[in-house]
Design a protein around this nucleic acid. Structure first.
Lengths: 148, 148
DNA sequence: TCGATATTGAAAACGGATTTCAAAATACAG
DNA sequence: CTGTATTTTGAAATCCGTTTTCAATATCGA
């Protein structure tokens, strides 16, 4: 069993929540996908195989995933919440293509360190951060050039 | 006349939009405040002195400010749009206190440079970026410690 | 001043997130 | 195994900030 599955089951037990077939289906589907789907898109995907599962349940379950730490909520400013699988300790930020919506993950330890420096300078205790670079991915950039 | 006022008036002329008393009132009020008010909060402030001006007009005018470049839209993930006055060329990022809502601006040229490096590595053309550090400001951190 | 055009404020519509509620499923004590 | 208290489910309703609609009003330029 995957580590995230264990974490989730533990969380259910701890909170005296119930282990339902819907939750397991959603969990497996969530761990299988590794992009940054919005609740809506994830629901539409899932519905193909499991038409019985309602949007509300998907939404509530994704929230549960976030609570127990196996999912991270992301908001890229397009008015849709997105969820991604969270792997332990690893933190990453995103390049977001404003043309095609492509999302590229990156890690940069130097930036993280500089953030800590900034926080310290302002006597600020960081709990979380978010860094997103918006622009054009290679493909869209080439296209744009070609269209001039 | 402030530079931003000129920019806005120029923009109105250029787009053949009309110079109304409401727009001027909203413009002056906007330039006077320098925090990061949400549309709602800004409207509530303004209403004290100008009860006749409607929310829709405030909303539309703030959008105009953003279009013509004298305002920047910010979204700190609390579901409310915020607008801040934009000063030429200067770019800054934010520390956001999740306890009291205080917002501290900062600039860090090294981080900006590292962002460019990251983008280049991924053949990505950056148009914009957003960096926010969430946590506790000094006051709230001290309080939290005291409450243990 | 007139007439075309843009703007206004109130209210309605919108869209995604969240909640409600009655029926169904689950856990667990006996 | 029950029986029962509790949680969960799916559909629909609600929420809440944003945006649009529309008829009345204001502005601008000839």
């Amino acid at each position: 069993m995957k580590k995230q599955e264990e974490l989730f089951l533990d969380y259910l037990t701890r909170k005296r929540l119930k282990n339902t077939s819907q939750r397991m289906i959603i969990l497996k589907a969530f761990l299988r996908q590794d992009s940054h789907l919005s609740t809506e898109d994830f629901y539409l995907q899932l519905r193909k195989k499991h038409p019985g599962i309602g949007y509300a349940t998907v939404h509530r379950t994704l929230k549960l995933f976030a609570e127990c730490g196996i999912a991270a909520e992301r908001n890229f400013g397009d008015g849709q919440m997105r969820f991604e699988v969270r792997h332990d300790n690893e933190h990453h930020d995103h390049l977001v293509c404003t043309e095609c919506g492509r999302i590229i993950e990156f890690e940069n330890q130097q930036i993280e360190q500089l953030q800590l420096d900034v926080a310290q300078k302002h006597n600020f205790f960081i709990k979380d951060h978010r860094l997103e670079l918006y622009g054009l991915c290679q493909a869209c950039f080439s296209n744009d050039q070609g269209n001039i």
